[in-house]
Design a protein around this nucleic acid. Structure first.
Length: 194
DNA sequence: CCAGTGATACTCT
DNA sequence: GAGTATCACTGGT
């Protein structure tokens, strides 16, 4: 079953947990690719009375973060380090700028297409890591704002599974947020970022 | 370990 | 409007 608007309307932490084990699908002219989501991070909101200063929307509404303030279930894609993209899904109720960063997945469909997009990469390097996942799935900034409820990029299925919890990666600059336990991985899964 | 790459969000004028 | 520090990363030493 494809996720609908309500499925994306929970808090970032709740949505990040529910996305583990679900499948991300992208249908393009090149073909269809899909991965089982194995690693996510929640952004936005509060933890033990502290605001998430690691979230892009924390400083307020800007052109880049605009989509995070709209209705849930849209793609928030941005360029990082001049060469890679990160793909997030907006969540929480309208006006509340939460999102979930998708950091890794395990290919379940369209492996030849994924390999073609990834050049020399093999194994977990194909799809594990936020930049790699975007390359493998053909996600770039042209998908900024795309509606995952109605478009060719969407989420389906999923069921509760065992989840490991850890601190988010590479946000040491965030005085409060650096220690939030908001990274979720599928327990025992090797398809995760380094 | 570390260079690469460019949009973004700040800081001054 | 111009100048610049920074970055939810990756790939090759």
């Amino acid at each position: 079953m494809r996720w609908n608007r309500d499925d994306f309307s929970g808090s970032p932490v709740e949505t990040a947990r529910r996305l583990i084990g679900a499948v991300l699908v992208h249908e393009t002219a090149e073909g269809t690719a899909a991965v089982r989501i194995t690693e996510t991070e929640a952004y936005g909101g509060w933890y033990e009375g502290k605001p998430d200063d690691g979230a892009h929307a924390w400083r307020g509404r800007t052109a880049r973060t605009e989509v995070l303030f709209g209705e849930p279930g849209h793609a928030y894609v941005y360029l990082i380090y001049g060469m890679y993209c990160c793909f997030n899904i907006s969540c929480d109720r309208e006006g509340e700028p939460g999102c979930v960063l998708l950091r890794a997945g395990e290919p379940v469909a369209g492996l030849p297409l994924i390999e073609k997009r990834r050049g020399r990469a093999k194994g977990t390097a194909l799809t594990c890591g936020p930049g790699r996942l975007c390359l493998a799935m053909g996600i770039d900034r042209s998908l900024y704002g795309a509606d995952l409820v109605t478009g060719p990029l969407y989420v389906e299925g999923g069921a509760p599974c065992e989840i490991e919890i850890s601190k988010r990666k590479n946000i040491d600059y965030a005085a409060y947020g650096r220690d939030f336990p908001w990274r979720f991985t599928m327990k025992g899964c090797l398809w995760v970022s380094r």
